[in-house]
Amino acid sequence: MSGNGNAAATAEENSPKMRVIRVGTRKSQLARIQTDSVVATLKASYPGLQFEIIAMSTTGDKILDTALSKIGEKSLFTKELEHALEKNEVDLVVHSLKDLPTVLPPGFTIGAICKRENPHDAVVFHPKFVGKTLETLPEKSVVGTSSLRRAAQLQRKFPHLEFRSIRGNLNTRLRKLDEQQEFSAIILATAGLQRMGWHNRVGQILHPEECMYAVGQGALGVEVRAKDQDILDLVGVLHDPETLLRCIAERAFLRHLEGGCSVPVAVHTAMKDGQLYLTGGVWSLDGSDSIQETMQATIHVPAQHEDGPEDDPQLVGITARNIPRGPQLAAQNLGISLANLLLSKGAKNILDVARQLNDAH
């Protein structure tokens, strides 16, 4: 009898209710805020589980004197976190989706994509230029951005401005803007500013005609071990179906173009009346040469937790077992079709030249 009692006690200790789920994140304040929001949602869904947040620095956090596009290494903000995932030191990792490459290392998958916040870019102005827009900034004003995508589009749109690289986390960039006289304004992701509670610093939100956004911008991705079915089931509740389908289309477009950090590629997606609209573009580094096109596809946005595919093969690095396969494939095909259209119009040449120029500098 006593033996059975011990077995029952052991089973209770090993039951999922007692389990601590370890969540990996970057150390920056924004990353911690984003991770806290994901953990809060998981806690609400699984009140019996405990969650421990483990923060670590990544290569991208450490190399702050070089433009991201020049470092010449993929997975700048993800490699150390993936290493911890691989060694079973954490069970899942919360990322900004735009930091996750469209091809993940073997053994990993994006197990959830959370509801997207505003994906557009924002302009934050130096205190002396508050009330201005990019259009009304004085001639030769210097605007800071760490992104080739932003610089290429904005140089084309605002030729009277000069664009220079600015690195560091959000706090560091804002301090550089406010305390030094080098920059009249800087460009940042609206979602990051909003998550930090800095709505009052948003001086201008850039519309798609001015600057399309990065693939996955404004959404959070939760990376897990691809074979860890328990954790895949656990994080599945975080999937937002519309965000998922938009981001599958965007990531398929980028992957098929073979774009990345070192080339200016941008997108804009919208879901309306059962249609998914995808606009994508590529630019030369100075913005003088560009190709942009829009395509659409009829896609039914499923309700969360309709029964999805059981075999769960990944699409552009994403596993969404609780979302039907048909809409996911339709979104992926839309991204591939748009990429093929741009490639047929000469996108590869623009991107190759951009890559060579970026590598040469």
Rank of each mutant, 00 (worst) to 15 (best):
S37R: 11
T41K: 09
A44W: 10
S45Q: 14
Y46W: 13
G48K: 14
E52N: 04
A67K: 15
K70M: 13
G72K: 04
K74R: 05
F77N: 02
F77V: 01
T78D: 05
K79H: 12
K79F: 06
E80S: 09
H83T: 13
K87Q: 14
N88M: 13
E89R: 13
D91I: 04
D91T: 03
L92G: 06
V94Q: 06
H95V: 09
H95Y: 03
S96K: 01
S96W: 00
L97Y: 00
K98I: 05
P105T: 11
P106V: 14
P106Y: 07
F108P: 15
F108G: 07
T109G: 00
G111Y: 02
A112C: 14
I113K: 01
C114D: 10
K115P: 13
P119D: 04
P119R: 04
H120L: 13
F125L: 12
H126Y: 06
P127Y: 00
V130C: 14
L134S: 02
L137N: 04
L137Q: 06
S141F: 08
V142A: 12
G144W: 04
G144R: 07
G144T: 09
S146P: 04
S147F: 00
R150Y: 00
A151S: 10
A152P: 07
Q153H: 03
R156N: 12
K157F: 10
K157G: 12
P159C: 13
L161N: 04
E162F: 15
R164D: 12
G168C: 02
K176L: 12
L177T: 06
I186N: 06
T190F: 01
A191R: 01
R195T: 02
G197Q: 01
W198L: 12
N200H: 14
I205D: 14
I205F: 09
L206D: 05
H207Y: 14
E209P: 15
C211G: 07
V215G: 14
Q217E: 03
G218N: 00
E223Q: 05
E223L: 10
A226N: 04
A226C: 12
I231F: 02
I231M: 12
L232P: 06
L232A: 08
D233E: 12
L234P: 04
L234T: 06
V237A: 04
L238K: 02
H239E: 05
T243P: 05
C247W: 03
C247Y: 11
I248M: 04
A249F: 00
E250H: 01
R251T: 05
A252W: 00
C261L: 00
S262H: 03
V263D: 03
V265N: 01
A266T: 07
V267R: 01
H268A: 14
D273N: 15
L276Y: 13
Y277W: 03
L278A: 05
T279W: 05
T279A: 13
G280W: 02
G287Y: 06
S288H: 01
D289W: 14
S290G: 12
T294P: 15
M295C: 04
M295L: 14
Q296T: 05
A297P: 00
T298Y: 10
T298W: 12
T298C: 08
I299K: 05
H300N: 13
H300D: 15
A303S: 10
A303H: 02
Q304I: 03
G308L: 11
P309S: 09
E310D: 06
D311N: 12
D312W: 05
P313W: 03
L315P: 09
G317R: 03
G317A: 01
R321G: 13
L329Q: 15
N333H: 14
I336D: 00
S337F: 00
A339D: 07
L341G: 08
L342Y: 13
L343Y: 01
L343T: 10
K348H: 15
N349C: 08
Q356F: 04
D359R: 15
